[in-house]
């Protein structure tokens, strides 16, 4: 890698003045509003503030990073960097690395601002895995859904299932969620209108447990919207902040690298539109809130993860597959740029 080209990429992507303006605007936009201040639950209020903080970043700062990365290379500039021992691929990789470093620095700065704003907190629920859901989705009165699943629990694990209800006028919208293990039974109830989750504390132990989901109102109908149960266990609130920052950092690196590559072929605004359309379509697609996001698209589950943070919980931590997906997207970005340079300097 060439350090001077790396610094050029860094400097161009994170132009100090433009970036300061964008960060300032995003900071103002993410201020805690009256609605958030009215929320009494501490974890929920902090979660909402954290979600607002990162949504402002995605709306105001991330597009700027993408636009600047897409416009990083001006036409004709590669002519003198490509006829050297550094070579086309290494030159492009150096510039892209600079742009990615710039994105990481900006995310780091935004994370620090978020930590200063939201501050530390006590334990919250953190995502701990999934378990199979019921075979049938339709939920009718008097016909509870019953199924078994292996769930290990230390007595602090909560199981949650997402449902959607249709209720006749004057009826209730309550769902009852039961779990049994070795004769120990726990129950959770929630009023759902028209969509939401119902949770239950899973008794401690290993092996299979029996779940039962039922409606308490004779006029209600509904269906299960998620194909699996989500399991939650208490974690420190800082995990939610760290998880959100890591997800946004990985997604930002991916966007910046792809913008750099596509910017060699398309104009910067068009690149921003293409990337925005791809990711927003993934975030808002049918089933985006119930099924797993496509793992090959780094940041494909970012919207759902931020929504989880907004509910006062911590989303699933990133794993190696997320890193691999981001690395693959970054490699595609660099390859796109190099291919263009080889074709027409």
């Amino acid at each position: 890698m060439n350090a001077r080209l790396w610094f050029l990429g860094l400097r161009r992507t994170a132009s100090p003045i433009v970036l300061a303006l964008a960060l300032g605007a995003a900071w103002l936009a993410s201020r805690e509003g009256r609605a958030i201040a009215l929320v009494e639950d501490d974890a929920l209020r902090r979660g909402l503030a954290l979600e607002a903080h990162w949504v402002a970043f995605l709306a105001l700062v991330a597009p700027l990073l993408v636009l600047r990365a897409a416009a990083l290379r001006s036409r004709g500039e590669v002519a003198w960097t490509s006829t050297s021992r550094a070579g086309i691929a290494r030159g492009e990789a150096s510039l892209a690395s600079g742009a990615i470093t710039a994105a990481l620095l900006v995310v780091l700065l935004w994370t620090a601002l978020g930590a200063a704003r939201v501050g530390p907190s006590g334990p919250i629920d953190g995502f701990a895995g999934s378990a199979p859901g019921p075979d049938r989705a339709l939920l009718e009165p008097g016909q509870p859904l019953v199924w078994r699943a292996d769930v290990a629990s230390d007595g602090r694990v909560r199981a949650r299932i997402e449902i959607s209800l249709a209720i006749a006028p004057g009826g209730g919208g309550e769902a009852r969620f039961l779990v049994r293990r070795n004769g120990v039974e726990r129950e959770g109830r929630a009023r759902v209108l028209p969509r939401g989750g119902v949770e239950v504390l899973v008794p401690g132990g290993e092996g299979p447990v029996e779940f039962q989901l039922a409606l308490t109102d004779a006029d209600a109908r509904g269906f299960v919207v998620s194909s699996a149960l989500s399991l939650w266990r208490p974690v420190d609130a800082s995990e939610a902040a760290r998880g959100a920052a890591a997800r946004v950092a990985l997604a930002s690196c991916t966007w910046v690298a792809l913008a750099f590559g596509l910017g060699a072929w398309l104009r910067a605004p068009l690149v921003a539109l293409v990337l925005a359309a791809t990711w927003i379509a993934t975030w808002w697609r049918d089933g985006a809130w119930s099924d797993e996001a496509p793992r090959w698209l780094a940041g494909g589950d970012l919207a759902r993860a931020l929504a989880t943070v907004g509910e006062g919980r911590a989303a699933a931590p990133l794993d190696a597959l997320d890193g691999l997906a981001a690395a693959a997207c970054i490699a595609v970005g660099i390859a796109l740029a190099a291919r263009r340079v080889e074709g027409r300097p």
Binding site: R11, S84, A86
Partner: peptide, 22 residues
């Protein structure tokens, strides 16, 4: 049609060119 990095100094850009050649 070579374009050079507009924001770099003449000396800095020439050193960049030299560094690309090792």
């Amino acid at each position: 049609d070579t374009a050079f990095p507009r924001e770099m100094s003449i000396r800095g850009a020439l050193r960049l060119a030299g560094s690309l050649h090792g």
